[in-house]
Structures are given as C-alpha cells and as structure tokens.
Design a protein around this nucleic acid. Structure first.
Lengths: 216, 216
DNA sequence: GTTGAAATTAGTACGAA
DNA sequence: TTCGTACTAATTTCAAC
C-alpha cells in the first residue's frame, strides 16, 4: 500500500468533472456524504436516506467501491484512549533520488499515520502517534536519522486537534456557499479582496524538486 | 463537533495505561485493529477473527463505542475521484486570545479537512481540499486573511500522499519491534545512537503559547 | 463468557415500468 | 436505468448453560 492518491502538482481537474472511470452524479455524492458520516449504515437505510430504491442503492454502492471512489471503510479510533497520547509532525528534507528508499523505510514505521510530499522548505511531512514524548525523540534520532535518504528533520508537537472531517466533498462547499455567500463573484485577481497581502506567503517547491515524484 | 482529542502538551500517558473509562485489554485492541481496516465487518465475523464468542464481541463492540474509543465509522473517499484534486497545507499564525474566533471561522470552512494546533514557528496547521489551485488562493486571501485572528499564513501544496494509515495503534509498534528489533535497548540519551545531531531540529512552542489552549 | 435457536434484517435475483 | 417484490442467506437478539 504505497501511494494513496495521485495529486498532480498543479493540474487539478475541473470542478465536478472526474477523469477516468465512473461518472459521479448528485446521487453518488449524496451516498458518499452519508457513508463518510456513518460507514456502518445498512444499504437499506442508505437507500432511504438518499431517496432511491434498495436495488439501486446496492448497484451504486458496489460501483463506488469497485471504481475506487470509496477506498475503504474504517473506524476512527481515539488514539489517546488507545494509549497513543502524543502526536507530532516531522518535516523531512529528503536527499534527491532517494525517495524510493525513504518510502520503503516509512512502510516499516508503524507509528507513522500519514505522510505527504509537499512543496516548500521541506520535502515531506509525516505525522506520528506515539505513547510519550521520549518515543518521538527516539523515532527522530534513532530511526529517521539513520535513513541515508533523510537529510534533515524538523519536529513540532501537536497540542490539540481542533477539527477532523471524515472526508471533504465538493458538495460541502456548495452548501456553504449557499449559506454564507448568496452572491459569489468569480475569482479574478489575488489583490481584489482588499486584503493586506503581506500577511500571507505561498511557498513553492525548491529547485529541481518537481521531478521528485518520478523517482519510484 | 469541536475538539476531537485532548492531547496535553507534554503529559503523555504511560504506555498501555488509559486514563479514564474502559480498560482496554488485548482483545479490545484486536477488535480495533480489525475495525480500522474493515469498518463494515459484521460483529459475527469480527468475533471469529478475534477469536471470541459473538455475544462477547457485541458487548465489547458496544463498550468501545460507548466509551468513545471508537469515535465513528467512516468511508475513506478518493478526493481526486470526488473532484477535489488539490490538497494544501496552510500554516497559520494566530493572534493571541483570538482562538475562539479562529475556531468558529474554521467550522464555517467546509474545505478544511483537518486542523491541529502545533508548537513551532506557526500556531496551527490546516489541511484543505479543493478543486483547483485558484481555490487555494481564494481560500487563503479571501477567507483566512479576513479573519482578524489570523496574523499570517504560509501555504504549501501536497504533491502526493504517500501513506495514510486508518489509525495507528500501540500493537503496531509491538509487532514491528518483534519483527525488526529482537533486542531493544532502553532509550537513555539522544546522542547514544551515533547520529549526527545537526541533522535534526526540535521546535518548541513560542513564548506564552502554552496557555493558548485555555482560550476556549 | 459461551453456545444455540428464534426473530429480524441484509443481500440477491429477476421481471416490469 | 431504476423500481418493486419475492427469495435466500446472514446477522442480531435473547435465552439457557
């Protein structure tokens, strides 16, 4: 289980259009909405909530699963209750052309919950869950630093997780737009909103890093 | 749905011990292991895989749910298929004593999938999923920058998501330790592993930020 | 904490609209 | 395609051990 998505750097699909596979209509989206909130709902109950027949619900449910739009069903676990009270983010600078090795090592670290390749100052961000702060230290100095692919790390602790949505869907945005922005003007220019631009910074990829993903 | 966990800054629980509520034994952990991989498995099948009777499985299943160790069941959705091909991380510096406002505004932004309060240079990290790069720009300049609580932002794009585990459990670490480290020496000192310490950096909280969580 | 049997519900197949 | 119904298989509940 290696790559869980293929986000191109800048080539985002048009809103509403899906590249290959199943064409997702409004009812598909409704199904996804229900399922991300209650992954254990029966297909019969799902059909009722979405407003389609049971047979149809079974067909669409299977189609979404087969197509990969639904990747899996999972239980969200309280890691504190489970004994992993410490969460940290480790930003990693990876030596070029050693991504393959880095990924292989990641797979051997069960305390890593999430890893993403990013633009900006660092190359990757990994999120780890451990039982105590010492384990973070061990993780970074003992395990990560011993990987030749790792050039440098920077660690921050997560003090609180304010929000985690099961999975964001385009329909959420539409709903919000209707609620809080009755008349939405099209995006034209960055400075159009009268916001002091000095407040924010966009950080692009370092030189020569655009090709990194091709390593494996 | 505001705070999804109560991670203390440094006060991690002892490994294996859970503060309040249900005492989780080995079988509970096994149940969680199965459920995080297959959230839709029937309790009957779960009982068989864990090696207990069905009645027992039902009891424990309900206990885990009631206790909050299982927070919810959800479907993992392929955001690219769903039309949200762009993922970005926005690091936010929040004005002190305006956290409450910041959180309230977050709740009104459906494109935010995750938000954590961190130590280090910034105060919070938010992950957003949108349909195109322009939407990130709009999000940052139009929406975030208009929140008085937001002092500054720094945005990076996620090029690829290498790894996402449903939820890390302590038993994963044990399994890994058995597999790759037959004799584990106790952690004593940072420099003990012979690793060049210059490679890594731990970033603590900025001054006066320890009290931030008490704002709400 | 376990097993077994009844009641309920889920999943499948197929014809009609 | 979608719906409705009838059929089969499985799950959940509940009881006794």
């Amino acid at each position: 289980m290696s790559d869980i998505s293929r986000n191109g750097a800048g080539g985002g699909g048009q809103p509403g259009r899906i590249g290959i596979g199943l064409e997702l209509d409004e009812i598909h989206m409704k199904i996804l909405e229900v399922l991300r909130e209650n992954g254990r709902i029966s297909v019969a109950a799902l059909a009722e909530r979405v407003g389609i027949s049971r047979a149809n619900a079974y067909t669409r449910f299977e189609a979404l699963r087969a197509d990969g739009a639904i990747k899996r069903f999972t239980a969200e676990i309280d890691h504190v209750r489970a004994g992993l009270g410490i969460t940290a983010l480790i930003f990693v600078t990876v030596r070029q052309q050693m991504w393959k090795q880095f990924r292989a090592e990641l797979a051997r670290m069960p305390e890593v919950e999430y890893c993403a390749i990013t633009t900006g100052q660092h190359d990757a961000m990994i999120q780890v869950r451990v039982s105590d702060v010492a384990a973070v230290h061990t993780m970074v100095t003992d395990r990560l630093a011993n990987i030749p692919a790792v050039k440098a790390t920077e660690t921050v602790f997560i003090l609180d997780e304010v929000l985690r949505r099961p999975y964001v869907l385009p329909s959420d945005r539409d709903r919000d737009r209707d609620r809080s922005r009755p008349s939405r003007r099209p995006v034209q220019e960055g400075a159009q909103s009268g916001v002091p631009l000095g407040k924010m910074r966009f950080v692009g990829a370092a030189e020569g890093r655009a090709a990194l993903r091709k390593d494996d």
